[in-house]
Design a protein around this nucleic acid. Structure first.
Length: 512
RNA sequence: GCGGCCGUAGUCUAGCCUGGAUAGGAUGGGGGCCUGCCACGCCCCAGACCCGGGUUCAAAUCCCGGCGGCCGCACCA
């Protein structure tokens, strides 16, 4: 069942939300790269802004921007080198694949470092020790295949070997720049860095358009804190104590039962570890529900278990969203990375990254990271907004996220109506709205076109406008119209986008 | 990456099996006429055989390879 999915993808390509890169000119272009068209880009900007206004600035986070390309050393310290450059060997009988270093370590009980060995040496070890397939017991292996899940680059005109890589997460940039940022901002723990940025993963098989891409965008918060001092967050949690966070606990995997746990319960039972993590779990869920408009019953935190968690994570919850077509899809990676990253960089760089705290002791900060997959958020906004009936197709996007905020039409293409409509359009643009003007075809067709891209308001200039300077103001969801005076229009648009009802809009004129 | 299915305008599709002349239609798009509020109608225009090779007098059609898509497995740090 992919009905809505297919329709949303079709609509997105057709109307300029997003489409596959380079397809027009070079049909064989590799998959997993997408262009954001004008409408998709607008939504993206709006969501970034909402994130910034809700989770960055009020939390005192400092937004920085670090390079996409980082030296290989960085990824040696972060553990990505080890975990991203897999060497796999496949059993020819049952077609199960194994990481060859793990296979050898586990079968022979060797602890020594196998990373430096060549493929030939590793294969020789497997064959000489007659290591059998742990799954089916066969002794029939393929050659070793290299899997690079990071894109490597050779920096410098004369470089021949890759000496850098495109980052697979923005985190490492923040960790590497933590100390400098802390210093220049005269920081104190907890200290939060924020990054909006593109990340790159050489996925084996990119699929489902924006759901799994090779180049995508993350909204990440990197919260550095003193694990021994939670006082600040204890305070911040007070108003949230009865807020319910939705979890899929590890033991409920089979049944899918969601546990609604209040902040208080999370703390008391220790399930959510500490006040800081608890606060952020609640905060991020609230952001998705209240600001981005995702219904609560479609959201849950899936607790990851050993083997699913990232190599760096002590605890890890994926915030997931449910749609009928795609099932539960991860939107936010919430990882308690402990001091894994900071320590890794201390080890590889031999620099001291510990900082002084108010307690008067130096600590190596721990890190908690809510990391939002922006493209997936946009895609799900579209999926959840899609509506159709016998008459029309429309996107019931949250009004403040719609890419076109208000469209202006002349009822007819004569009698001076287009001229007046263009004036009104100009005024709205000057007021800072994302306005849109159209005079082609019939009025009904123009309404349909705007419905399809989720434009919340259509304003129409008719003959009455020329007499009393009022226009019709149409609501996307009900198709109802009220008349508004042109002078009140900017105010009406602003209020409607912020959530006012159509009745409130129509009473504007009578108040004035 | 493996296996199965598939690839004709932006989208949907006819033609392919059985090779043959300007690749047809719908929808969408642009322009025009019309139109006093929800995809009216009419006229005009632009737009496609995934890429490469092979077989053939001749390939959208047959064969091979590549690329891409969907589904399943694996991967998803």
């Amino acid at each position: 069942m992919q009905q809505i999915y297919d329709k949303v993808v079709d609509l997105a390509f057709r109307r300029g939300f997003f489409w596959p890169s380079s397809r027009e000119l070079y049909p064989g272009a590799p998959a997993g790269f997408y262009v954001y068209g004008p409408l998709g880009l607008r939504m993206k900007e709006k969501i970034i802004k909402l994130w910034r206004m809700n989770l960055v600035l009020p939390e005192g986070a400092h937004e920085i921007e670090t390079p996409h390309i980082l030296p290989i050393k960085v990824f040696e310290a972060s553990g990505h080198l080890k975990h991203f450059f897999d060497r796999l060997i496949e059993c020819k009988r049952c077609h199960t694949r194994f990481r060859v270093d793990k296979l050898i370590e586990e079968t022979l009980g060797i602890e020594e470092n196998l990373e430096g060995m060549s493929d030939e040496e590793l294969l020789k070890l497997v064959l000489e020790n007659r290591i059998r397939c742990p799954k089916c017991g066969a002794f029939d292996w393929t050659e070793i295949k290299q899997f690079n899940l990071m894109f490597t680059v050779a920096v410098g005109a004369e470089a021949e070997e890759p000496n850098a890589a495109l980052r697979p997460e923005t985190t490492q940039g923040s960790v590497v720049e933590f100390k400098t940022s802390f210093m220049v901002m005269r920081g104190k723990l907890p200290f939060i860095l924020a990054q909006v940025g593109r990340v790159f993963r050489n996925e084996i098989s990119p699929r489902r358009t924006l759901i799994r891409m090779r180049e995508f965008q993350q909204l990440e918060l990197h919260i550095f804190f003193d694990p021994e001092d939670q006082s600040k967050y204890e305070e911040k949690l007070k108003p949230l104590m009865d807020y319910k966070i939705r979890f899929l606990k590890r033991e409920d995997r089979e049944t899918g039962n969601i546990t609604e746990m209040t902040v208080r319960e999370g703390l008391e039972t220790g399930y959510t570890i500490n006040p800081l993590i608890t606060y952020w779990l609640a905060r991020v869920q609230k952001f998705f529900n209240e600001t981005l408009g995702f219904p609560l019953d479609r959201l849950r935190y899936r607790e990851l278990i050993e083997g699913e968690k990232a190599h760096y994570a002590l605890a890890h919850w994926d915030l997931e969203v449910y749609t009928e077509d795609l099932g539960w899809v991860e939107l936010v990676n919430n990882a308690y990375r402990t001091d894994y990253d900071v320590k890794g960089h201390m080890r590889v760089s031999s620099k001291d990254l510990s900082v002084m705290t108010d307690r008067g002791v130096k600590v190596i900060p721990h890190m908690y990271e809510p990391s939002i997959g922006l493209d997936r958020v946009i895609f799900h906004e579209l999926m959840l907004a899609y509506r159709e009936d016998e008459e029309r197709v429309w996107l019931q996007l949250p009004r403040h996220i719609a890419p076109i905020e208000v469209a202006v039409f002349p009822l007819l293409k004569r009698d001076g109506l287009p001229e007046r409509a263009r004036e009104i359009y100009r005024q709205l643009i000057e007021q800072g709205f994302y306005a849109f003007y159209d005079e082609s075809g019939s009025i009904g067709k123009r309404y349909r076109r705007m419905d399809e891209v989720g434009t919340p308001i259509c304003v129409t200039v008719d003959h009455q406008t020329l007499e009393d300077d009022t226009v019709t103001f149409r609501d996307r969801d009900t198709m109802r119209q009220v008349r508004v005076e042109v002078k009140d229009l900017p105010d009406a648009v602003r209020k409607f986008l912020a959530g006012s009802s159509l009745d409130e809009i129509s009473s504007l004129a009578s108040e004035a």
